Simulated scan of single mutants.
Amino acid sequence: MSAVPVREGEGAGAPRSPREGEAGPDVAVFIYGGGKVGRGLARAIRAAGLPVTLRAARDGLPTERIDADLVIVAVRDRDIAPCAAALRARGLVGHRDVAVVHCAGALGPEALAAVRGGRVAVAQMHPMISFASPSFAPALGRGHLLVDGDTRAVLVARSLGERLGMTPRAFPDLDRVAYHAAAGLVANGAAALAAAGVDLLERAGVDRTTAAAMLGPLLRTVADNVEALGVPEALTGPVRRGDAAGVARHLETLRRLAPHLVPLYVAAGATQLPLARALDEAPSAAFDAIQRVLDGT
């Protein structure tokens, strides 16, 4: 599925030219939601030289009208639609041209339908970035930004993404739940795999803090390989080499030190096998032998 120009939404007024929608020095940003995503975006936007106001959701919506060119709704998925309805009901937006976007990966722009109007354009603006803590802002550069919705809002969101060093993306007929599941499988799954690695390194004799410090750069090189080489080329290790004896030694050690990690290792190995076969850097019989080791036969 390749990236394509975004569509024009209904009820958002005439589309503007890219120059008019550009997130330049005069674009003011208001972020509602002071959690991990809201704070991370606020820091990045401020560092990019744009004025930004961050308001925590626990403080509630402001009582005064929001004077901003872009309103980012950075709250939990279930709170997006009620927030949109409240923004409209309280007259907090609509007195000037504004783009209102949300950051949910599994929800499209229609989650904000309640606030859409002649001067209010809406869009989905999901950064495919891992935001793990309000106190730590991940780097957004080289990241990708899923954008879809009304043309005016899309122009602003895309321009902001580019200002932050991100690549805006739009896909026709995207299954957003599958998209979000894929992001979660990698981001959340990688964190869980790292936790398993820390556990095993501790059992091998490495202290927990050092183990995490060692695995972070390893994960970064995997990410670099995936981005630069793609898959299956990013695969490394004994499965790619067709080293059944090496896989067997890993499993023997896991059964001794960390038997609870054996199912995870076996599942990961089974997922690697088709990639290794596609790379074809070892005889087919070697991969068959790995399969037998993983099957315990």
Rank of each mutant, 00 (worst) to 15 (best):
V231Y: 09
E22S: 13
Q124R: 15
G161E: 06
S130A: 15
G296V: 03
L201P: 02
L140D: 11
R220I: 04
I290F: 00
L87M: 02
E281W: 00
V6D: 12
M1R: 14
T297K: 14
G108E: 07
R249F: 01
A244Y: 05
V156K: 12
I66E: 07
L273D: 05
A84S: 05
R158T: 15
A68V: 05
R169E: 13
A182G: 15
L229F: 03
P274W: 05
V198L: 03
V100W: 03
P62S: 11
A74H: 02
A104L: 06
A212S: 11
P51H: 13
V262K: 13
P274L: 08
A211C: 05
G105D: 08
D207F: 00
K36Y: 00
G108T: 04
P138F: 12
R176C: 07
I31F: 03
V198R: 12
V101S: 05
E64M: 02
D243L: 02
R176D: 08
A104E: 06
A204R: 12
L273H: 03
V222K: 08
R255C: 11
F131K: 08
A139Q: 13
A137C: 13
P232M: 10
G33W: 05
A187D: 05
L264E: 00
A113E: 14
G105F: 02
G143I: 05
V247N: 12
G34S: 07
M125C: 15
R163L: 08
L294N: 04
G40C: 07
A268D: 01
Q272F: 02
V101K: 09
Y265G: 09
T53A: 14
D97L: 10
V73T: 12
R39S: 11
A137L: 02
P274M: 07
A3Y: 00
A248C: 03
P109R: 14
V101W: 02
L201F: 11
F287L: 11
G24A: 15
T221P: 00
F287N: 00
